[in-house]
Computed example of a mutant assay.
Amino acid sequence: MSLPIQEIVLAPGEGTHLTIGNSEVIFKAVGADTHGHVGLFENVLPPGGTSPVLHIHRQMEEMFYVLKGEVEIQVGNQTVQGKPGAFVLVPRGTPHTFANQGTTTAKLLIMFCPAGDREQYFAGLAKLLQMGQTPDREALIELMRQFDQEPVDG
């Protein structure tokens, strides 16, 4: 029998902060908070900020909701210029990525279902990108595969 899910109440800016390259991820809820069902992260993305390579997930859906600025989101065969209020659902197996091509900082919510321990991917990525270093491609691919993420070579 699992323990009940506990309430989480966070003020703006609260949560566990991670610096990933020149972007920031703030964990609002992780898999351990929801019995692995869902994770919700806030991503603060400066212009040209660190963004993922085109990739897929085989075991989870990913959702994006733009809060501020403009985020270019590629999902499947379409590219969306996401302004505040834009929402994108990425079904498992669908190639996707996102980037801030604009001139102002963007902020988006990223949700994973099921979450598992997805936050560990971001923690590993933060370590690989610390101090502006370029990660070893093999180490990056191994990290991705460990947490249900596969690059789409193209």
Rank of each mutant, 00 (worst) to 15 (best):
A139F: 07
K127R: 14
F98D: 00
P114G: 07
E150M: 09
A115H: 07
F98P: 01
E62I: 07
Q81D: 13
G132F: 01
Q146D: 14
F64M: 11
G93F: 09
E150G: 11
V71I: 09
L67C: 10
V53Q: 08
F147Y: 15
A115Q: 07
S51E: 03
A139R: 12
K127A: 13
T50E: 06
V53K: 08
H57Q: 04
P84N: 08
L89A: 08
P95W: 04
R58T: 12
Y121M: 10
H55R: 08
I110H: 04
V152W: 06
Q81N: 15
L89E: 04
Q101L: 12
M144D: 10
G82Q: 03
M131E: 11
V66A: 12
K83L: 13
Q81T: 15
C113F: 07
G116T: 09
R145L: 15
G69A: 10
E150K: 05
Q130K: 12
T94L: 12
Y121I: 05
P84V: 05
G76V: 13
P135T: 06
S51L: 05
E119R: 03
G154N: 11
F98N: 00
D148C: 07
D136Y: 05
V88Q: 04
E62R: 00
V53F: 10
E70R: 10
T105Q: 08
R58M: 08
G85N: 10
G132C: 11
P52V: 03
Y121T: 02
P91A: 09
P95T: 10
E70G: 09
L67G: 05
G102H: 05
G154W: 09
D153C: 04
P151H: 09
F87Q: 09
E142M: 10
D153P: 08
Y65G: 07
R92A: 13
I141P: 00
Y121R: 02
R92V: 06
A126Q: 06
R58S: 11
E150D: 15
R58I: 00
L140S: 06
Q101H: 09
P151Q: 10
T104I: 12
F122C: 01
A123I: 14
Q149R: 11
F87K: 07
A126R: 04
M144K: 03
F122K: 01
L67H: 00
L89K: 07
D136I: 07
T94G: 03
R92F: 12
V66Q: 10
V90I: 15
M63K: 07
E72N: 10
A126M: 05
E61V: 02
G85Q: 13
P114V: 12
G82D: 05
P95A: 08
T79Y: 05
A106R: 01
V75D: 00
I110R: 05
K107Y: 01
M131W: 02
G85C: 11
A106E: 07
A106M: 04
Q149N: 09
L129C: 01
A139M: 05
K107C: 12
Q78G: 08
G124E: 02
Q74H: 15
N100Y: 02
G76W: 04
K83Q: 15
G93L: 06
P151V: 15
Q59R: 13
L140V: 07
P91G: 13
